[in-house]
Design a protein around this nucleic acid. Structure first.
Lengths: 231, 231
DNA sequence: CGCGGCTTTGATGTTCATCAAGTAAAGTGG
DNA sequence: CCACTTTACTTGATGAACATCAAAGCCGCG
């Protein structure tokens, strides 16, 4: 990780409207005081499950994974977070310890504010508190929704789901580089590494996708959509 | 459903401290104005996914299921809510429509307050907003945690989990009456009705439990705990 | 250069959903 | 209140979906 000297502050931040829309300039100045901008390299761990929450994070650029580790070193990836995501919102208000670990799966720049400052503002500015709640609830609902949606799909449907997720939601291109390993895909959509590989190969043989290591290109998007739906 | 005339109001409510601890008497009077206490019979539906959220609910006595219905009439039970649960907290602050349906699985008494009143108080009283967030976040974290925990268990482990859940968390007795059908158990822990029955019978044959219709008695709790853990 | 982690493919066996068929229980209308 | 219909429960047989085990190639890193 590496601290970054920033020129422009919160006031002109393009993400300001997303959640800080209800804060006035004085309140933003207050946040600014403890604010740091930090750069993480792919692979760096930002927070570890069980450690104290002292900071409120939000993602400016890059990609993160939010995950949990269980007995037997089994890891579940709960979600992938992209730019403008408020990753640390989860469990920040119910716990003083992180319930999830966070790691960079691409080079990532994060804005960090003291968590007590956020709580202070939430307490003193009701509009802001409502914005936080809205965002938090939305994020949680998304996690639950995708978890239950994936759960009922067969393996082929899960792979189709995750490929289309990266192509449409994350990279907005049919050709992209997978930011995670085959094993991590399995941790995200609940299947073994071997089967992730097997089904990717199957899709390749069926001309649905092109594969070159981590590079994926979707060749037949209609077919993939169909597999996602019925699989 | 049936309206109930109540003598005592929020001020003396045993659950007040849980979430309304930061409201003063004036604020409680404000809530009281729109407050209703409603009785639902087992099987009654309180809210339907997709309908407008106008009310804030909390459970005084009884048991509810919170669930989602998917294409093909497939139902997932997200959680069971018991006394002192704030069932409508989920999605209330991110949506104007319910994201989940709620139904009574036992005779239930619910306190209902206008949702706008709650939002108004959250806006004007920061402490209260923080309490709501805390509760909300906690509830969501629990859902996610149990979902991922169940997901990795085999069927026997899931049944053990749910039996111990009812025995320890809900009824606090080794003998209890299941509030839900075999099919609903399947919807809760993600397995087919047939396999729910099959494994219950198996546990019965192995003398781990006693079954008489909906009555369950856990005879060998150590063994069940072991199955829950390793299954 | 060797070691560990990631990737790949094949063979094998287990777990689980599905199908079928029947009994019991509970709700519904005449 | 009884015939009728639907819903819940139960067991067995079958096959598909999936995890596990094994073995080997590849790549980056110390």
């Amino acid at each position: 990780m590496k601290y970054i000297n920033t020129v422009s502050g919160c006031k002109n931040c393009p993400y300001r409207a997303l959640i800080f829309g209800s804060l006035d300039n004085k309140e933003l100045d207050f946040l600014e005081k403890t604010r740091k901008e930090i750069f993480y390299k792919k692979g760096d761990v930002l927070t570890k499950e069980g450690t104290s929450i002292n900071e409120f994070l939000y993602l400016k650029t890059g990609l993160l994974k939010v995950y949990k580790t269980r007995a037997g070193n089994k890891t579940h990836i709960i979600r992938i977070a992209g730019p403008s995501d408020f990753v640390s919102l989860l469990s920040m208000f119910s716990n003083d310890k992180y319930k999830y670990s966070i790691a960079a799966i691409e080079d990532t720049t994060v804005c960090v504010v003291d968590s007590e400052s956020i709580k202070f503002l939430a307490k003193s500015n009701g509009e802001f508190a409502l914005e936080l709640m809205k965002r938090m609830s939305y994020t949680y609902d998304e996690i639950i929704d995708s978890t239950y949606r994936i759960r009922q799909k067969h393996l082929r449907g899960r792979i189709a789901y995750i490929l289309l997720y990266f192509a449409q939601k994350v990279y907005r291109q049919n050709r992209f580089e997978l930011p995670i390993s085959r094993r991590e895909i399995g941790e995200l959509i609940n299947m073994t590494t071997e089967n992730v590989i097997r089904i990717l190969s199957e899709f390749r043989k069926d001309q649905i996708i092109f594969i070159d290591g981590k590079i994926i290109e979707i060749k037949d998007i209609e077919r993939l959509e169909r597999i996602k739906k019925i699989g």
